[in-house]
């Protein structure tokens, strides 16, 4: 099958190289700046049109989701929400074709922001304790979490890169393992109390610590830090060995700091998805209820 596709391309004639050549001449452009902010302009245009329409069109008896203009905005909003939620599928379905996930992300961000305008105008500013307002609030929450995501994506990657120092995650753990093996050998001459501190440090899972520790990067129960502190307090029978162990513990703490740094930044980059995605599903459910109830009680 692949060779058939190859043959097809081979027969496509002139032009197939120019497409490749264009790609080879590309540059790093962020999803926000994609195609000179194409989707920002489209979103702004859409919002502006919605606002102008809202201001100019005389809606009787008052602006409302049930007027013809309200229905129009509602339909646009619903279509947008459904399409936006399909990003999760697009990301995972690597089908052939000239699509780019970056373009999708760009459109997702700007059209998602435009929903604030479209959704709000659709309500006609009629807020109450009902399923309609629930859908509206859920939408705003999804957008708010999305805004956090955009900020995280735009600002955190340099920190992630700097923290990595050309190491892969596996290499970071390997480096920790290597330090641990040295620590184990170096701690043999130590006394009972000191050895216990080292054993506790070695025994602690490098991933220990709850979500809070992960997000803040603070690990108050870090056994390595405690061992370093403890080593200062306990007088040692073999000062030379204690000094070697201290140096190794210091190295271990630095290595842990790198691993925890990576965990922290990645957690900050991902945490919002744990809000954004479930709320999107809740929003879709609320929307379904909203649409059905509107038509049922027409």
């Amino acid at each position: 099958m692949a060779s058939a596709a190859k043959q097809r391309r081979a027969q496509a004639g002139p032009g197939r190289f120019s497409q490749d050549e264009r790609r080879r001449d590309s540059d790093h452009v962020s999803f926000l700046k994609h195609r000179r902010f194409r989707w920002l302009w489209i979103a702004l245009g859409l919002s502006a049109a919605a606002i102008i329409g809202y201001a100019l069109i005389d809606q009787e008896p008052r602006p409302n989701g049930g007027s013809w203009y309200g229905y129009t905005l509602g339909t646009i909003g619903l279509a947008l929400i459904v399409w936006l939620s399909l990003l999760g599928v697009r990301k995972r379905r690597i089908t052939p074709g000239a699509w780019s996930l970056k373009a999708w992300t760009s459109a997702h961000v700007y059209l998602g922001l435009a929903l604030i305008v479209i959704g709000t105008l659709h309500t006609g500013f009629q807020i109450g304790w009902n399923v309609h307002t629930l859908a509206y609030v859920l939408m705003l929450l999804v957008i708010a979490s999305g805004i956090y995501g955009v900020i995280a994506y735009a600002t955190l990657p340099p920190a992630l890169s700097a923290n990595r120092r050309e190491m892969t995650r596996a290499q970071m753990l390997e480096a920790l393992g290597a330090i641990d093996r040295q620590l184990e050998a170096a701690a043999q001459p130590l006394g009972r109390a000191e050895a216990d501190l080292v054993i506790a440090a070695l025994g602690q899972d490098p991933f220990a610590g709850g979500p809070l520790a992960r997000l803040t990067g603070r690990y108050p129960f870090c056994a390595t830090a405690r061992a370093l502190k403890g080593l200062d307090q306990v007088g040692s029978a073999d000062p030379g060995a204690a000094e070697r162990v201290r140096a190794l513990l210091e190295k271990r703490r630095e290595q842990l700091a790198q691993i925890r740094g990576a965990l922290r930044i990645r957690a900050l980059l991902e945490i919002w998805l744990f809000v954004h995605v479930p709320l999107t599903i809740a929003l879709l459910a609320a929307l379904t209820a909203h649409v059905i109830s509107v038509f049922y009680y027409w």
Binding site: R24, K91, S100
Partner: peptide
């Protein structure tokens, strides 16, 4: 390159 959500990955000559 197509699957990069932020535009970080490119293939160039």
């Amino acid at each position: 390159v197509r699957a990069c959500p932020t535009g970080a990955a490119i293939r160039v000559s």
